[in-house]
Design a protein around this nucleic acid. Sequence first.
DNA 1: CGTAACATTGAGGTCGGTCAACCCGCGTGG
DNA 2: CCACGCGGGTTGACCGACCTCAATGTTACG
Lengths: 239, 239
Amino acid sequence: MLTHSAALKSAFHPAALLEQPVPSKPASDQHAEEESLDRCMALIGSVTYYPRRVQIVHEDEAADRIYKVLSGTVCTYKVLSDGRRQIGGFYLAGDIFGLECGEGHTLAAETITNAKVLVIRKSVLSALAGRNAALTGHLLLLTARELAHVQERVLLLSSKSAQERVVGFLLEMSKRGSSSSGNSVDLPMSRQDIADYLGLTIETVSRTLWALENCGAIEISRRRRIQFRSRSTLVRLQQ
Amino acid sequence: MLTHSAALKSAFHPAALLEQPVPSKPASDQHAEEESLDRCMALIGSVTYYPRRVQIVHEDEAADRIYKVLSGTVCTYKVLSDGRRQIGGFYLAGDIFGLECGEGHTLAAETITNAKVLVIRKSVLSALAGRNAALTGHLLLLTARELAHVQERVLLLSSKSAQERVVGFLLEMSKRGSSSSGNSVDLPMSRQDIADYLGLTIETVSRTLWALENCGAIEISRRRRIQFRSRSTLVRLQQ
DNA sequence: CGTAACATTGAGGTCGGTCAACCCGCGTGG
DNA sequence: CCACGCGGGTTGACCGACCTCAATGTTACG
């Protein structure tokens, strides 16, 4: 496995700010504020390019950074003592990870695909936040959102069947995915990643997908491209 | 803790601040700051007493409040469409719940035992936070901590056996519990609550506890009082 | 003492894990 | 061109942990 050194690092690139498309009209104050958080992070962070399947964060690393995915896909994970891996979450372009508190509870992170990541030092951010209370407020909002998301996942993992989990996953990815062009999703991750995310085995994921295809709910082309044939069936199966 | 001799509900009681014991020496800045958050919440919140097994928050309720448990035990939960209940977390004296973002993702909350709860309106808190950036910072810290905690739970739920879950639960409660006097825990919640928390059935929880007792790791007296006979065995079984 | 809520115990079924074989696409190298 | 290996994915047979259903036991409390 590759290490950090493989990554190309481009420190401090204010010009990137200008490249960002400015929305014609902010939908609300909240949006405008989030926009300002984005700009702030772009200013004080540094952009790094990682190839696929490299570790960005180690499990016991001091967590004084947060990360924003600019392109590609990243996952956070933890390796259990018996060697099994649990994926904490997938992060697509625009998502932020590393928000969880760094009291030894840090998850590791690695790239699923090639990825462009904005790395922000928390210390710098909080120095700014001292002067700008709104900034901390946005971080709080993001963290609370992530918390709600993880709690949803707790529900999914603890009391749902394999089929419900897989269906839930597909619907979630289709909702989030920039790569979900209307009626299909391009999954960037392998079956193993999905299994580790859902707390299942790779075989069960495979079998469940086959079952979904068999009952006409989806169609699988080129392994990682899922087409939705009957969304209503999926929603029903998800319970 | 706050000692309030008010009736059912007491709004705005600045005198209460003076009653709070001041730590002889703040262990760190962080501790001192958390203290200040506590005081702020005590100032703007109102204390409410709930009997056992009543709902504090409904599932779809607008989430403009956060709650601090002053005494007793509370749990958050969600009821699935098939009637099964998933418990999101248990909150003991000193814990805060309701931090998750209110975008329709709210969990319901109900008391396990009689409970004294401090209710704080988010709007009031954030109004204060506008002037005091540190305040938001503490909320952020708390939320990040909760996030880390829930992520630990995701690991526990997705890839551990029934025994590992139960053992993990017992150790967690013994670490947190004020009612855990040294070598035993008094569980405030029923077997059903534990089962719903761990994503198991009540029967499995019961059988697992029996197995733990049988192998000499614990001893069960009066149903909800668990004595630890061999902590090392438990830690080993937890993996 | 009697009742009801809570908890334990038992028998049997099922979902998903485990292990193993196989398939498929792809790059490499002769 | 084929042979080969390799990583990722699928398929099948079997088994065990946990769920389900049902009966029984225990505790709390009037």
